[in-house]
């Protein structure tokens, strides 16, 4: 098995630990852990979009007041429960997003007929992006993409069909025992955080 596939399956097994997390502190720690995972696998992390997400989702929930009245903005009560609910939802989204990033690094091979179709789609996607560079002029747009599609519909002369051989994208190293161990460790950490959150050991704020 390729190591990118190990990450895929680890992520699938970890998904419920994030989806079922009820504690806002637990989900925040899980999100941080998953962001770290994505970061160490060549994915980028930008703070601002995540802050915007956190603020917008939290403030959207203020419209439905819930819990301790902290302060008011004009006539509008800012409540602790509503803020926490919004923050929890935003952290869930962030955690899922970066877990998803982590899972698809190295482009794992998906099983079955659909997996082969997706490979074929990506084969054409690469051909389109390379062909597009050689097309000029690119304006007006319609004749340009028309020429692009005609060029691609002609039977490929260079390589054989990608659906029979093992897809052109299956790069990635062979999985070693250590990759398996490392991912098992990540899985245990994420589920441990879930258990901590459910059992109320983590502070509930």
């Amino acid at each position: 098995m390729k190591s990118s596939n190990i990450r895929l399956y680890m992520g699938l097994l970890a998904l419920p630990s994030i989806l079922l997390q009820d504690s806002s502190v637990g989900i925040a720690i899980q999100a941080g852990y998953v962001i770290m995972l994505a970061l160490t696998h060549g994915r980028r992390f930008r703070l601002l979009p995540n802050i915007i997400l956190l603020v917008s989702v939290s403030s959207a929930h203020l419209l439905q007041p819930h819990g301790l009245h902290l302060f008011s903005i004009g006539n509008f009560p800012v409540t602790a429960g509503a803020l926490l609910l919004g923050a929890r939802k935003a952290f869930t989204l962030i955690a899922l997003l970066y877990l998803s990033h982590y899972m698809v690094t190295g482009r794992p091979q998906f099983p079955g007929r659909l997996g082969k179709l997706v490979s074929l789609q990506f084969y054409y996607f690469e051909r389109i992006t390379t062909s597009w560079r050689s097309i000029s002029p690119k304006r007006p747009f319609i004749p340009a993409i028309d020429r692009l599609l005609i060029a691609l519909s002609a039977p490929a002369t260079d390589s054989g069909s990608p659906i029979t051989d093992d897809s052109p994208h299956t790069f990635g190293t062979r999985a070693t025992g250590s990759a398996l161990l490392v991912n098992a460790f990540h899985l245990i950490v994420l589920w441990a955080l879930f258990v901590l959150g459910q059992s109320g050991i983590l502070p509930t704020l």
């Binding site: 992520g11 699938l12 998904l15 994915r43 869930t92 989204l93 899922l96 997003l97 877990l99 998803s100 990033h101 899972m103 698809v104 690094t105």
Partner: peptide, 8 residues
């Protein structure tokens, strides 16, 4: 990279 998140 959003395939396994809510975004999908």
């Amino acid at each position: 990279g959003t395939i396994f998140s809510y975004i999908i």
